[in-house]
Design a protein around this nucleic acid. Structure first.
Lengths: 333, 333
DNA sequence: CTGAAAGCGCTTACAG
DNA sequence: CTGAAAGCGCTTACAG
């Protein structure tokens, strides 16, 4: 592959001049410019961004770490981030962590060595101190749904989302409301559960621990947990699943068992992935504005990279909004 | 961020020695090695892969161009490719083309300049001659479902898949079988339609052009096309959609209109995305072994990159297999 | 209006 | 057992 030297020689100018026409970074006479362009075309010249990056100290590539791109929520988010990055002239490296700490650390290492300009983290099994290498090395970082010292973040108002989902069911007359949550009591799952509990409390409904079942965010786990819920002596009349995938699992289980939705049981999810509009019945859910989240993550990161932000870490919270479809209805008598 | 010079100075050795302990590329005395490692830790040294790549002429990063990562088929494929690449020590840059030629070309340019080690192409609005820059610049390329001169490819046996899907419906007694295909008569869509036609021909069923409706691979288009099909004077009793998303759209339409599936109408898809197991009813489909496809694409590309392949371009065809679920049944009398 | 040269941070023959 | 130095392909002060 030809280099800037080849072009300079062919055009009879210095490499400085070639570089300057390439980047429009200083005046070059019309005639010289022509010659350089011709030479570049003749030689099919493509600037080498490794060399450029080495001197400019930037790569114009971002990294995105998600739990699993096979999960539609993350796939849609990746899509949004990639879109926004592309507009700004950045590429994005996709990393699936599978929520494994060792895989995440391996990735961080690769990404630091590749000198990506910034990282958007949407999953984090790692602890704060494992991020030190990033902070140390001054690699801009923005997280989604995770709060760490000194790092910018876009957050969801999970307490409110959990509250509203539960409130919606209560308003429909339900009192025995189950919750299919995440694998651990902490983090994301936690705040949503708190919202759930607050709504129950406010309505004067006693909390029944049996009705809180931990899933792992997959359809399969939603199905399984719904089954356990309906094997209870007094099954719930409504289910709040902490993401749409698990809600769809619950829907699937109920259908198989011949339970009518929403006539006998209501189900509400959270995320509003593209698919939930086409589940059976269409899923009522608390919608996360995925495209907006992706855009804001990317924007925040780029602002940080380009020094457009004050030194303090920035935090923004985005709100979910309920979208009512056909999986929820008034409780049967 | 500290450099190899800093480490060398701190350890009292030359940069050659540091480099060699870093890469285990020549003998270094135990004691020196220790000193170097200590210095690296103290300085939190991270090798700069831009510099390394510049001399080694490799980046250990791959690129994947898909139409849209929001489409579960591509998301699952991206996942598989990323997995396999990670194992081999490669990162992957994700590019969404939206089937736009200009976007694809913009990406190709960025990717060449970034000197990615190879590209997997799963969509291609571009013509053969637009790929010349890649071939010229000796950038290894592997395509999925597209055949170009001099480029390695993994292909699906689309004629056979189309044939088997249709054959399955015929075996169930259907004779009025619609086909919701892709937007253009060429490429992927084409071969599948050919299989469809062959199966009809072989069964002595006349082809009715009205029954072939072009969609655009989305749920929405499947829904819309099914509607048009059922507004026909004599609607079909079975639908073959060329991908699962459109099949699910058809399912949705039929359900809304109160048509019983599969009692009144059968629907078969193609892909077997994770979701089709949970559609309503669960979708009968011709399964593409997505994980295998991803693995083989990646493997082929890495083999090419590392010179493990003969100069001639390689082609491999993978077969779809029918998975029978509940959306197809014997034709009603 | 343009060029010579240093430097970005590595690897790798060459030499001893 | 280890080091000095050239080179990978650019950008960018400095100088005229």
């Amino acid at each position: 592959m030809s280099t800037i030297y080849d072009v300079a020689r062919a055009a009879g100018v210095s490499t400085s001049t070639v570089s300057h026409v390439l980047n429009s970074t200083r005046y070059v006479s019309e005639e010289t410019k022509q010659r350089v362009h011709r030479a570049m075309e003749d030689l099919r010249y493509r600037p080498n961004n490794l060399a450029r990056g080495l001197v400019r100290q930037e790569t114009r590539t971002l990294a995105l770490i998600v739990a699993d791109n096979g999960n539609p929520f993350f796939a849609e988010l990746a899509r949004a981030i990639e879109d926004y990055g592309f507009e700004a002239g950045y590429n994005v490296i996709l990393c699936n962590s599978d929520r494994s700490t060792s895989k995440e650390l391996a990735y961080l290492d690769m990404l630091i060595s590749k000198r990506v300009d910034g990282i958007v983290y949407t999953t984090m099994s790692t602890q704060q101190d494992q991020l030190l290498p990033l902070v140390d090395n001054n690699i801009p970082l923005v997280t989604f749904e995770r709060e760490y010292e000194q790092v910018d973040a876009i957050l969801l108002d999970n307490v409110k989302s959990g509250f509203e989902a539960t409130r919606h069911l209560i308003d429909l007359g339900h009192r025995r409301i189950a919750c299919i949550c995440g694998p651990d009591a902490k983090t994301r799952s936690h705040a949503r559960i708190r919202g759930y509990e607050q709504a129950l409390l406010q309505a004067g409904i006693d909390l029944d621990p049996e009705l809180i079942q931990p899933g792992d965010w997959t359809i399969q786990s939603g199905l399984l947990r719904a089954q356990q819920l309906f094997d209870l002596p007094t099954p719930p009349t409504a289910i709040f699943a902490l993401n749409d995938l698990m809600a769809i699992g619950a829907l699937t289980f109920l259908r198989e068992r011949g339970v009518a939705i929403p006539e006998e049981v209501s189900v509400i999810g959270l995320d509003n992935i593209a698919f939930s509009e086409f589940s059976c019945p269409p899923l009522t859910t608390i919608a996360t504005p995925i495209a907006e989240v992706g855009q804001r993550l990317c924007q925040l990161l780029l602002d940080r990279i380009n020094g457009r932000l004050p030194p303090e870490s920035q935090r923004f919270t985005v709100q979910g909004t309920i979208v009512t479809r056909r999986s929820t209805a008034r409780r049967p008598n």
